[in-house]
Design a protein around this nucleic acid. Sequence first.
DNA 1: GCAAAAGTGTTAGGTGTACACCCATGA
DNA 2: TCATGGGTGTACACCTAACACTTTTGC
Lengths: 262, 262
Amino acid sequence: MIIVCSGITYIQIQEIGEIYCTFAQNTKKEIFLMAPFYIEQEKFLLSVDCIILGFKKGKLYLLISKRKFEPLKNQDTLMGGFLRSDENLEDTVSRVLYEYTGIKDVYMEQVGTYGSIHRDEGERVISVAYYALINLELFDEELCKKHNARWEELDKVGKLIFDHNQMLEDTIEILRRKAATQPLGFNLLPEKFTLPQLQSLYEAIYQTTLDKRNFRKRILEMDILEKQGDKDKSTSKRGAFYYKFNKEKYDQLLQKGYYFSL
Amino acid sequence: MIIVCSGITYIQIQEIGEIYCTFAQNTKKEIFLMAPFYIEQEKFLLSVDCIILGFKKGKLYLLISKRKFEPLKNQDTLMGGFLRSDENLEDTVSRVLYEYTGIKDVYMEQVGTYGSIHRDEGERVISVAYYALINLELFDEELCKKHNARWEELDKVGKLIFDHNQMLEDTIEILRRKAATQPLGFNLLPEKFTLPQLQSLYEAIYQTTLDKRNFRKRILEMDILEKQGDKDKSTSKRGAFYYKFNKEKYDQLLQKGYYFSL
DNA sequence: GCAAAAGTGTTAGGTGTACACCCATGA
DNA sequence: TCATGGGTGTACACCTAACACTTTTGC
């Protein structure tokens, strides 16, 4: 009998003895053997965990859900999913993001890979963390109920499972460093936004207050915002002008070697 | 007949049909079933690739070896190894580093994880890249011959296999960003080094020339270097004073909230 | 008319950068 | 004594950060 088994070559179980599986790969209906060196290596479960951030009312929010299976069922967790063999890492992230937010084409960035032996209390799992920045206007609230998920204020996030708190911490550090030199904040805002909104976003990211005049001066002289004709009157009687981020202009300036910083 | 197979639950091969393997884990001679959710997930080969950097004679060098197995046998490659189930990611890196350099306790940092479906032409392998900074005085030259390895000048590195050139690029970017705010350059130098040496290291990292007076002023007023009584006379008749990096002092200052930048 | 948020310029102090000459020593 | 790399101080330009008042408009 021929046993074809994708994955690890053998597992040693003393009571039963050793069982060897020859690794084979099925491509276009031909079966050929793997290069010998690969065969002898162990394989691992690989997951992605997503730090999904949104921004509203001057505050950053993290999407948290209740874990659906053991171990640690019903505890707070980041959104995650297992890598599949037909997916790039980013594909898995996109799949998870779409499942939990209903949004495609989300801005995402790798945070790092967490592989401590016992990080997952159930089984050895190596996890690649990605953070994603969400425009909450596009977010599908229905999915929250479906997945038992919620938006938690960033500085009120409690204990998450495994090393998810560490992932979150690392994300914030990367986000701060990155936001200082690249205009990634725009991913957290609607297409049209006001300068007070933008300022409060940066204040949320850096946990500080900024001087209105200095902020406006700096951001406007970068010349990557387009002032719109209409105003947002929801927060004041006078109303604040809408702006749009001009990505083309930004890319042009980058190519010319401009260096942005806030 | 019971088939116990660690890894993927089934592989679909049309000519043969579907074969299912139940996942089992052997711990302390007890065999118990995994949490059901994990069972259904695929497993992957996981490797680490090491970008090993050294510094001598004013230039940065990358350790490169010839790949020992197919595919792409004998082509230039970074040092790498497969993750084992009893290792954390850093353990694997340490093992690889020790194997190729003979040094333990090396400064290392994760670069990122590379998981494109076809990045490895042999088989699906997800690779976590780490860079390591080596004090070349401790390096064991014998190991070069044994592994068919060599130190290649950083800006003369040619085509490496797979996405290793990308990993190298990403490393340099991280190194530059990091070196500007943290004293990691010291890992590339002997315990005792001179200021001209230190300056030429930073010049190598940033591919630029620095003003001697400005550099010395900045680095000395950080107050993390200890001037030694003796001099290095190998590069000039007058000789340059040796300095040592004072890590304790650096950590103290960090705790007080000091922010370093070059 | 008043409350509440939007919008607007100037200045002082500090930081980064450019720059040129003397020193110590071995050959 | 001279060639070679090591070591030192200052002046100016620029950028950052601090600061207060006017405008608009719905109620």
